[in-house]
């Protein structure tokens, strides 16, 4: 037995559904930035410690292409970009080294001095996070810790993704506000329950978007560098060099002693 919703309520819900469906669409250049969107941008900028969340990037970098070369150097990450791009920098180094433990400790010290930290560590690999503005310096410093066998870095342009999330967040918040207003005006219990269900869904959506924005914020603010270690191959010193060249020493031991009586069988 269903309860017929008032016509007014049905129109409101239809409009709401239309708005939610359109929220994922491309941003319009003509859309004025809502106060909350501006606030989110400011939050991201403050996390960067720069005046604006912009970074200089070449066209190749902006497309998210990778550069892999023993001599290629990552770009400066402090300069402002006129295009206002949001970039995530990741780098990798393969080093040939002698003493892995000691070198890892030196890398950890260098990274922590830069204000970074180690996110993952194993006997053959270190994953470190460094402030984005120090990405280039970090790559240069870590390259000096051993013989560089391979190096690569990548700048991932996430501007569109972040802006898309910001717009979805703004729209979801607006929807939440409208639903809260509708909830106050609900005339029946059924209407109230329906609105509350929708409100819960929108709240979860807002939390999910905020989580994604936090993740982007973290990855933009801190660049990731993976350092892999390979031991320098050296010729193994033959063990025989340390044994005196007197064959009678080979007769020492229980193995030889216990076999002596067999000669007399």
């Amino acid at each position: 037995m269903g309860v017929a919703l008032p016509r007014k309520m049905m129109w409101v819900l239809a409009v709401i559904a239309l708005l939610v469906g359109c929220a994922a669409g491309p941003p319009s250049a003509e859309m004025a930035a809502a106060p909350e969107e501006v606030g989110d941008r400011v939050r991201l900028a403050e996390a960067h410690g720069v005046d604006d969340i912009r970074a200089e990037a070449s066209p190749a970098q902006a497309s998210g292409s990778s550069v892999s070369s023993p001599t290629a150097e990552p770009p400066e990450t402090e300069a402002k970009s006129e295009r206002g791009q949001l970039l995530i920098y990741t780098g990798s180094l393969v080093l040939a080294i002698y003493e892995v433990d000691e070198t890892q400790e030196r890398i950890v010290d260098a990274v922590e001095e830069m204000g970074g930290y180690v996110s993952e560590r194993s006997s053959s690999q270190l994953t470190v996070r460094v402030p984005a503005e120090l990405f280039r310096d970090a790559m240069a410093a870590l390259s000096k810790m051993g013989d560089v066998l391979d190096t690569s870095w990548r700048a991932q342009d996430v501007t569109e993704e972040v802006r898309d999330l910001e717009i979805r967040l703004r729209n979801a918040r607006q929807l939440r506000d409208r639903l809260e207003g509708l909830l106050e005006e609900a005339e029946t219990v059924a209407d109230a329950l329906e609105i509350e269900r929708e409100l819960e869904r929108v709240t979860l959506e807002i939390e999910r978007i905020l989580g994604q924005l936090d993740s982007f914020e973290d990855r933009i603010a801190y660049s990731t560098i993976e350092v892999s270690f390979r031991p320098i191959e050296i010729d193994e010193v033959p063990r025989e060099d340390f044994m005196l060249p007197f064959t009678f020493f080979d007769q020492l031991g229980l193995e030889s002693l216990m076999r002596v009586p067999r000669r007399y069988r």
Binding site: R239, F242, M243, L244, F246, F249, L252, G253
Partner: peptide, 13 residues
Amino acid sequence: NATRERMRLRAGY
């Protein structure tokens, strides 16, 4: 010394 060292290299003693 040589004997002691040789027995040390021969594992198990």
